[in-house]
Design a binder for these strands. Structure first.
Lengths: 212, 212, 212, 212
DNA sequence: CTCTAAACGAGACGGTACGTCCAGTCTTCGG
DNA sequence: CCGAAGACTGGACGTACCGTCTCGTTTAGAG
């Protein structure tokens, strides 16, 4: 690649990748969509660890400044992109039995971890954890959502008489998803299904169904 | 005391670039020690995420080439430094009762996570997880060690008749430390002690002591 | 005087890394000027052979990236700096006689070789000579310029009747400067004046004035 | 490539590419020959500019220390290698006529410049030119040799009456080879034959044969 | 024929510079 | 005047050599 031979003279030429003086300039939602698309594509291509603002900007045919104007850093951008992509939340499963319900929930969670969300969660672990960081945000929303659904499943099981009411404690609600997270973080994706069934059969159900 | 070791101490820390043509040059163990010391110091000062080979080299008064000759990257260097620092492993606790033993084990693990090891584990999460990466290495050695100690504790409890023999399964052995890891990764250090007692009292002990 | 220029001067030379977030950032011509100045200063201080992009960047208080963005390598940067420095070309001498004119031309050329240009020419010799390399560029412009002036001088001598018209051939035009170059390259700077007079009196004039 | 996993322990292993403890170790002339061969090979492969002591040592299967023990630097090593390779000097040509003799001499010189010698000369230009540097050495020996031969050729021409005795001056003796050098340095190898004939016919012969 | 001193090979070591990539900040200029 | 584009500074990356040095081994030559 030849650089500018007469560098100083070539200034007005400016053959950048996109000449925004002729093309219509994107603003608002159009630009957001392009950025999110680029972010998710990069995420899928190279993963969170090697995703850079530079490459996202280039891929979205925009500038780094436009990214930094909207999000303070990589983590926030990526989370925004994921949030944007996310459609309606899966409904709480209702298979008629506790085991089926819990397994369905875990499989749903595992599916997320196996995808882009897992990639991001893993990456976020490395980025500090001080007050109100992106990881704290994602943690809260993730935990809230799955705890709510798990509560619902357990409450139904209580109503059906499968488990005693006193078995539904915060620790028990959070237990199984935490073990799935742990497996993902230390053994990576994809999470084999037998890991999920073992969590349910060897840990969660025995704990919930034991007598007082 | 060999002459290289004398040389190391005689460097007044802020003495500009050392003239290695006159001073004895450090080799072998002396050099390793200097590098490890610098690595751990950087780790403590700026954390894993902002630790760079450049700064470690400067701090150890050596060159990047000398680092790359020994370790292919940041993760391997840091793990080697940690391994080097680690003295004798803590003995398996024996408090006379299952609850005390398990709590002692978890507190020991939590103390590690609250220190440099936790800093590194968090950082390693982001660096891929393919075959035989640093994280895989650290995972194996960490899990092996604590599973062995937990097995020992549980076996003693079986012998004392506190829990039935069939309660000692791989899932149960790994359960409590995994929950500690999970809390550390998502809520950060330091891990409050009540988290550990809740894991023991609300999850592990009920599971181990329930009838068949 | 523009504000960037004020800023440049106001840096007390040893003030550590500039905080470019507060100071006005240099662009365009101001930056080019700073880079060229630094390049020429390095050239004068350590010579072409030991001039490095690293030191030029540091001296110009800019970054290597800013240099590589403009020039592909050391040679191009240095030539650009020389080109930038070069003011108006010296006028073709007119002393009233052929010998005086030619000597003036050679002295002008020798003065250039004795300065930075000579330093660079010598350095460029080593950097390959394939198609359209920096040395080819500088060769062309240098030869063009001096051949033009020498032609003018000889043409005037023909008009004055000092030499026959058929004596003005490309070989004769290029001859004397080539011998000056040769002396410079093999014997170094400064070129003694008697070398120039000998070239004129023992080679060039006899050749031009001989009968057909 | 995997680095040493347990770096500190692996020290005694040292399975280098060649185990010189079994192979016979070279000394004296054998070693010199191997070094020269490697030097010339590198010179031919990558040229003087990219020839490094490191690569020469590796190619000769010796160590850098063995090189530096013999020559202070790259230039000296290369010149020694060239000197070693040079067989008997070509005899002074005797074609029976001045023009043929001079052309033969120039062609001989051009052939050298077109080969490794030219590569080296070009490279040496960049390496300073202070007192008694390699370039000064090579200049002296090169110039001495060709001036001697040129003198012989011209003397014979005087004896044959082709040129007057007073035409044989130091300036005229050195003239033609200098122009060949100049062409080589600025236009590179190979030197077209017509350049040589033009030097002879348009410059040297007219100068030598003109009346007083 | 020993024994010692030198030469040798291998590579470690502290440095410097390479050319590239990216983070964030700041300026320019089109709409 | 706003905001998109991208120029700019700083700094780390991982690599290649430099020239010096240490470490054992091998070999020549002195006794």
């Amino acid at each position: 690649m030849r650089k500018e031979e007469v560098a100083m003279e070539s200034q007005p030429a400016g053959a950048g990748p996109v000449d925004h003086r002729t093309l219509p300039r994107r603003r608002g939602e159009t630009l957001y969509a392009a950025i999110f698309e680029a972010t998710l594509a990069e995420l899928a291509d190279v993963g969170y660890a090697r995703l850079t603002m530079e490459r996202v900007a280039a891929r979205a045919r925009t500038s780094k400044a436009s990214l930094y104007k909207r999000w303070p850093g990589r983590a926030d951008l990526v989370l925004a992109a994921l949030r944007h992509r996310r459609g309606a939340p899966s409904p709480t499963p209702d298979t008629g039995g506790l085991r089926g319900d819990v397994l369905a929930l875990l499989r749903d969670g595992a599916a997320q971890l196996n995808g882009l969300m897992g990639e991001v969660i893993r990456g976020l672990m490395a980025e500090g954890l001080r007050e109100s960081t992106p990881i704290a945000t994602v943690r809260t929303s993730m935990f809230d959502s799955r705890n709510r659904r798990m509560s619902e499943v357990l409450d139904r099981a209580v109503k059906r008489g499968e488990i005693p009411a006193h078995a539904v404690t915060p620790q028990h609600i959070a237990l199984a998803p935490a073990l799935v997270d742990h497996h993902f973080l230390f053994y990576g994706a994809p999470i084999p299904d037998h890991v999920l069934t073992e969590i349910v059969d060897a840990v969660l159900l025995p704990l919930l169904t034991r007598p007082a």
